[in-house]
Design a protein around this nucleic acid. Structure first.
Lengths: 114, 114
DNA sequence: ACTCTGTCTAGACACCTGTCAAGATAGAGG
DNA sequence: CCTCTATCTTGACAGGTGTCTAGACAGAGT
């Protein structure tokens, strides 16, 4: 979902183009929310690497539609993917997208001197 | 600026607490903007690892106050730091904060099977 | 076919955010 | 002390975001 170019141009090594920054910001925005970060961690750490909505709603004082909204934001950003199997819809994390974000934030400084 | 606990509890390995997710989201929100991502990359890739505001405003079709606002958001999130030397204020990236974010997005899956 | 359960969509509203114009503050240099 | 430049702060406004209620859709079981 994220353009390939940002992965080879870490934020802290070379100036981002405007286009790259827009694309990266779109994905960062998707995960920059407490509910969505927790959803992400709940899905990823759930047995089998996937979770249905019914496993998730109980962890929040939020209505079903609100959880559904947040899942949609994550889905449209390419951070998770959902699949219907029978009655339930199972979500799983798409690790490539997250790794792109992670890589972009790694700097020469942090990589070398820590 | 980011609590230490998230660094030892990657998002994708164990469920985040509500407190951790709020703290992480605060920092992710700060960088989840095209202008701020470009500011970050401009500052980090500038000679000496620092840049004054006058080096930055030229890259955007935005007024000075708007750039100043974005720099403040980054500063309050602990992503950059500013220091006045004479007439100019120089900003530099605080790499520890970014590394925390980067680490949090690294998963067992991406780390191993990548 | 009807109903029940699980999930999503649509519409509405309060709050947050990005932007600008106008004015304030800090240091340099006369 | 006054002025000039660089930057920040304040106040205002348009647009975006998170949340809810009400209703729609899909599949399972009777």
């Amino acid at each position: 979902m994220v353009d390939q170019s940002p992965c080879c141009a870490p934020v802290l090594r070379a100036p981002l183009t405007e286009r790259q920054s827009v694309e990266l910001a779109r994905v960062f925005k998707a995960i920059a929310d407490p509910v969505r970060l927790r959803l992400l961690s709940l899905i990823a750490s759930h047995a089998g690497g996937e979770a249905c909505v019914c496993d998730l709603t109980g962890a929040f004082d939020l209505t079903g539609p609100t959880i559904s909204h947040h899942l949609k934001v994550l889905r449209e950003a390419g951070v998770i993917d959902g699949e219907r199997r029978g009655t339930w819809i199972y979500y799983r994390v798409l690790p490539d997208t997250l790794r792109t974000l992670s890589d972009v934030l790694v700097t020469p400084e942090t990589a070398v001197t820590g």
